[in-house]
Design a protein around this nucleic acid. Structure first.
Lengths: 230, 230
DNA sequence: GGCGAAGTGGAGGATGTCGTCCACTTACGG
DNA sequence: CCGTAAGTGGACGACATCCTCCACTTCGCC
C-alpha cells in the first residue's frame, strides 16, 4: 500500500457536518444527540443557555460536550450547519429560477422561515460568531450570489432602481426582530412583513416618485456583533 | 406663609420622573446619577449588564443602587420613563395632526428613532418588564390612541383597507431587530425600513390586487417576553 | 456647633456557570 | 473472550453576579 503513517489530511475542516468518520460508534451517536439537544435548548432559551442544560437534555455529561465542542461558538456553529447549507442550496435554486423576482422571493421566504423557527440561527447567519472560519468563504459566496440575483431581478424590472443589496440584510435583520414571538405568531408576522416589503421593493408606479433615504452600509458579513462585556 | 404641612399631592404618579421630593438633596442627586449611568450602561452592554457596572459608572456603591431600585426591572423601567412619556406626547401630537397619515408617520419615525438610539428601550416599550405596573394603563391608552389614529388614516384613504393595527407592532418589532447595529447604521436602516413599509401601507393602485397574508395576533402589550431560565 | 436620622460604601455569603481532571466503562480488533 | 485505547460522567476549583447587612459619613434642622 502506498502509505500508512496516520497522515490524515489535517482535519480537513472545522465545525462542519462531516462527523469525523473515524469516531467510535457510540461517540458519533452521542455527538448527534448533543447537536439535537443544542438546537432544542437554544430554541427554547437562546444561545446563551448554560452548556450544562444542553448536556442534560442530551443525556450526556458536560465533559462529553466540551470534548466534542470546545467552545460555545463551536457548538452553536455546528448545531446550525444544516440550516446554513439549506440556505445555501436555496440560494442555488433561486439562481436557477428563470424568474429572478420569484426566485428571490422564494429564497427569502425560506430563509426567514428558518430564522423565525429555529431560534438562535440568526446568531450564526448574521456573523455573530466570527470563529466560524470556513463560513467566511461560504458567506462571500452567498453575498456574491445574492448580489447577482438582485442585479438580475432589477434588470428584469422586478425591483425598483434604487434597491440596494443591503436591503436584503435590512430585511433579514428586521425579521430577526420578530424571532422572539411564539412560533405561530412569528411565522405569521414574518410572512406578512415579507409581503409588505416585497410590494415596496417593486418598481413604483410612474405617478409616485417616492424617494428612499440612503441605504445603510450593511453587508451580510458586516452586521455588528453585540458587545461582550468590556 | 399660607400653608406648610408637607401635604404635597401624594406622589401624583409612580415610577415616573418625579424623584421623590422629600428625599435628601444628596440622595436625589445620586438617584439621577444612577439613572444616567443606567441608561449609558444599558446602551453599551444591554439591559443585562451587571448592576455593579451601573453602580461603578455612577460612582456609587451597589447598596445605594439597590436601595433606590430594588429590582432590575425597577431600574430599567425608571431609566426609560422619560423616553416613554416622550412617546406618549408624540402620540398626542399625532392625534392632533389634521393629516392622520402624516401624523402616524411622524409618530412612528420618532418612536423608531428612540428605539434604535437608546438601546434597551424596546425592553420597556415592548412589555418585557410586566412589573412596570402603571405602564399598563399608559399602554392601554396608547393602544387605544393608536387604533384611533389608524382608523382615521384608513378612512382618509391613506392606509390600505387590509391594514391592521397589529401591523404597527409588527413594524416596531422589526425595527427592534436593527437596534444591535452601530448608531449611525441603525438610524439609516430604520429610516429606510420605515420608508419602505409606509409605501407598502398605502392603498395599492387599482391595477394590483396584492393580497396580504393574515395579520399576526400581536398587540403592543402582547408581545412575547423572552423566556427566563426554567 | 451639635445631634439624630437619612444616606452611604464595600465586604461577604449565596448562587450559578464555566471548563478541567480523573477514575471508571465500553467498543471492538485480535 | 480479553486487552487496550477511546470514550464517559460527575465532582470540583475558579470566577462572576446577586443582594444584604452593618459600621461609618453626611445632611439639615435646632
Amino acid at each position: 500500500m502506498p502509505d500508512q503513517t496516520s497522515h490524515k489530511p489535517p482535519e480537513h475542516t472545522a465545525g462542519g457536518p462531516p462527523a469525523d468518520p473515524n469516531l467510535r460508534a457510540d461517540a458519533r451517536r452521542n455527538r448527534e444527540r448533543v447537536l439535537e439537544a443544542a438546537r432544542e435548548t437554544f430554541a427554547a432559551q437562546g444561545v446563551d443557555a448554560p452548556m450544562s442544560a444542553v448536556a442534560r437534555r442530551a443525556g450526556v455529561g458536560v465533559a462529553t460536550l466540551y470534548r466534542r465542542f470546545p467552545t460555545r461558538s463551536a457548538l452553536v456553529t455546528a448545531a446550525f450547519t444544516e440550516q446554513l447549507s439549506l440556505c445555501a442550496s436555496a440560494l442555488d435554486e433561486a439562481l436557477a429560477d428563470p424568474d429572478p423576482g420569484h426566485g428571490l422571493y422564494t429564497l427569502l421566504e425560506k430563509v426567514c422561515t428558518t430564522l423565525v423557527t429555529d431560534r438562535g440561527f440568526e446568531t450564526v447567519l448574521m456573523a455573530r460568531f466570527p470563529e466560524a472560519l470556513d463560513y467566511d468563504k461560504e458567506r462571500a459566496r452567498a453575498e456574491e450570489g445574492l448580489a447577482r440575483l438582485v442585479r438580475r431581478a432589477r434588470e428584469a424590472g422586478q425591483l425598483r432602481e434604487d434597491f440596494d443589496p443591503a436591503d436584503i440584510a435590512l430585511l433579514l435583520l428586521a425579521v430577526t426582530g420578530l424571532a422572539g414571538q411564539p412560533r405561530e405568531t412569528a411565522l405569521a408576522a414574518s410572512r406578512r412583513l415579507l409581503t409588505y416589503l416585497f410590494q415596496a421593493f417593486r418598481p413604483p408606479p410612474p405617478g409616485r416618485p417616492a424617494p428612499l433615504p440612503p441605504a445603510p452600509p450593511m453587508g451580510l458579513g458586516e452586521v455588528h456583533r453585540p458587545t461582550g462585556r468590556p
